[in-house]
Design a protein around this nucleic acid. Structure first.
Lengths: 195, 195
DNA sequence: CTTTTGTTTAACAAAATTGTCAAACTTAAA
DNA sequence: TTTAAGTTTGACAATTTTGTTAAACAAAAG
């Protein structure tokens, strides 16, 4: 089918992603997506056949984007500490844009019992964890299970974005102040990981 | 209305909480809740009038339980380090039971724009943060914005539970192994906070 | 200009979810 | 044992959400 490409298909998908990932509207309906895109709801079916297919595509692309972001960092040839510093910077910037993306991935994983073929993934992770282990052996990093090390980093980076509404309320901060707090975390997380 | 208390109302509510908080089924329908409770769906309406009211009740109670758990810890008279150790223990045990509770609270906050009266809350938090500040002045804790200190702790405790499906897949672990990893985190988090 | 093909729209149909009601049922009190 | 009050159920109605279709529309090809 030769397409005329009015950009509508991409617009719908991008709008859906924005609602899911940026606004955390995890149960947005097709009508809400269409409205937000300024488009007739029927077009969702025209381009994607069904709501589920749209969701699946968004889910898959989110997962792919998330993974390839990490891969770029993991597979680079920087020294370990610089790699971590880079990871923190990239991850926080991206999470600031799409705070709920991981959340969307998680909840979708809980809905479908998609046996995601994480096998290929596991390899890159394993290599990176060996690198962590080596740093621990060298005494550059506090000794612990490398899995714990990874959990620590990702928790410190990601969680404050997920719980932003809660913490803004708790701390009495506005959006801008909270954004500054997140920016400051880049350095802080680094220092927490490498005391 | 004098009630006969067959326990059904509580059963429905508990089942809903289990689906939401323990299984992460954030968009469960009334039918799914009723089925899981082994109860006729109409009873949801009989006891709660509407789906929204059930959700609101569950939301409110979740929030209250969450807060009072923290209050007990915050307001106790232990020395600071013991207080933190206690917080970690209590919080992790509770999060192991209800890994998605905070998530539910967050997404519900994103749906309704409930201006939660967090003012009373802010007071206890403020007092605790002053306590943190004092420890920093004494040199017991690395100096930073106390808000960052709190974000660190809660991130390290909560996030690995939210992302459990993701990390189990990534690390190739089963449920039991992951549970052990979480148990080990109690000590590890303590050491990360107090290097 | 006309035709062809892909796009958009509105009206309609189908499905899924929620809400209502009267009747059947159960238990405790009269 | 009746009676009264709360509880449970199934049938039905209303609403919300999703999916389909035919016709209108727009742009590129002939």
């Amino acid at each position: 089918m030769s397409t005329r490409d009015t950009g509508t298909e991409q617009l719908i998908k991008d709008t859906a992603k924005h609602l899911f990932f940026a606004e955390g509207k995890l149960h947005a309906t097709t009508q809400e997506i269409a409205d937000a895109a300024g488009v007739n709801r029927t077009l969702v079916n025209y381009y994607f056949r069904s709501r589920d297919i749209l969701f699946d595509q968004v889910f898959t692309e989110a997962q792919t984007a998330f993974i390839s972001t990490l891969d770029e960092v993991f597979e680079s040839n920087m020294p370990f500490k610089e790699k971590i510093r880079n990871l923190i910077s990239v991850f926080i910037d991206e999470t600031a844009l799409y705070p709920y993306r991981q959340l969307f991935i998680i909840t979708e994983m809980n809905r479908n019992v998609i046996l995601n073929e994480k096998k290929s993934r596991a390899k890159t992770v394993k290599i990176f964890m060996e690198e962590i282990q080596k740093e621990m052996d060298n005494g550059q990093v506090k000794k612990m299970d490398p899995k714990q090390f990874m959990l620590n980093i990702f928790s410190l980076m990601a969680h404050p974005f997920l719980t932003a509404p809660l913490h803004k309320a708790l701390f009495g901060m506005n959006d801008e102040e909270y954004a500054t707090l997140m920016e400051d975390r880049k350095q802080l997380i680094f220092e927490t990981i490498f005391p």
